[in-house]
Computed example of a mutant assay.
Amino acid sequence: MVDIMGMLQASGSAAATIETVAGLHVYPRSVVSDGGSVFFLGRRGTEKQLGALMTSPGEEGFDWEVRPVSVGGRELLLGLGPTHHANARALRSRLPYTAPVPGGLRRSAGLGDRLGIATPGHIRALRHARDIFPVLAQQSIREIERTGSSPEQVLDAATWGVFQEGWRGGYGADADHLKTVADIDACAAAGFVLYTLDPRDHVDNDAETDGLDTLRRKFAALPWERLATSADETLRTYADKSWTLVGGRSLTLSEEELLRAACKYGRALVHLAGMYRHLTAVMGGRTF
């Protein structure tokens, strides 16, 4: 196997050597070898381009133009292509550190890039922080619609920023404030790995001030089958009951308090459960 990175570094700076053969300004932190080809991100004017130096044109999934170049007396192939969705998707597959991962219980910070150009700056700031997992792709569906963007564009912008800066600390992609299964479908197809579901449209705020007769009617009309219980069972389990909490404090739930809580949030819980089941099915075996 030809050591392309070794050939580039033999001339001093890998990025500088690539600049000479490609005719681009190359972001030094982006230059990386996957053991075969050497990938990089370059810029000509304001246009960024994905590039690779290869020994053969067999890089699957990438959309680029390939031409022969000479590096240190060795004939190689140079591929240059646009930073569009197909190439971002291929890059995430080829270089896994450019793809988002779940953050779990790690300390995290949401750094949603509303402009699609801020991720490199966010990463440079993160290099001065300690133990922070960045959620670099984070926008609500409403923000995406208002900016005329798409879930794919939001995630791709994060991917290119991570690639440009050579960030290998992992990052998250949060599909925020999802209200419908169509929202889930769009974000899952794009590759998001965190999901924030928004049930606000199913919250009954009038339940805070409704009279008891109205509350009882609403309570009886809740979709109990979808809640996997019944009105009578819920009353028996929670109404006028007390619980001792850690530290010795107690909590008592009156029938009226139970009715108000159930009427206000019951349908929201049903909606969330349905959204979660749909998300689980759409994600298949993928972790989220």
Rank of each mutant, 00 (worst) to 15 (best):
W167G: 00
A231N: 04
D213T: 14
D174Y: 04
H177G: 12
E233I: 01
P223H: 07
P199T: 04
T237W: 12
G170A: 13
T196E: 12
A221T: 06
N205C: 02
D213F: 00
L212G: 13
V193F: 02
D213C: 07
I184M: 15
Y171P: 01
I184F: 03
A228L: 13
A189P: 04
R217Q: 10
R217T: 06
H202L: 03
F192V: 05
A220R: 13
G172E: 03
D198K: 03
D185V: 10
L235W: 00
G211H: 02
N205T: 09
I184W: 02
A207S: 03
D232P: 05
A220G: 06
T214K: 13
G169I: 13
G191E: 11
E208S: 15
D183K: 13
C187F: 12
T237M: 12
D232W: 00
T159H: 09
G172M: 04
L194F: 09
L194S: 12
W160R: 07
Q164A: 14
H202F: 02
L227N: 08
T196W: 00
W160E: 11
R217W: 01
A190V: 01
G166H: 02
C187N: 14
G161A: 12
Y171R: 09
D185C: 09
E208C: 08
D176R: 14
Y171V: 00
L235M: 05
F219P: 00
T214L: 11
D213V: 10
L178H: 11
F219V: 00
E225C: 03
D204N: 14
D176F: 08
A188Q: 11
K179E: 14
D183W: 10
L212E: 14
V203K: 11
T214Q: 14
D198F: 03
R226H: 08
T209P: 01
H177M: 09
K179V: 04
L194E: 14
R200K: 11
A190C: 04
V181Y: 14
Y195S: 11
T159I: 06
A189I: 04
V162Q: 08
G169F: 05
N205H: 10
A189S: 14
L178T: 08
D201T: 12
V162R: 05
G170T: 09
D185L: 13
A182E: 15
I184D: 15
L215M: 09
W224V: 00
V193K: 03
G161R: 07
D206R: 11
F163K: 12
H202C: 02
A221W: 05
A228W: 12
V203M: 07
P199A: 05
L227Q: 06
A228K: 15
C187H: 14
V193S: 04
D201A: 15
Q164M: 15
K218H: 07
L197V: 02
R200W: 03
D174W: 05
A189D: 15
L178K: 08
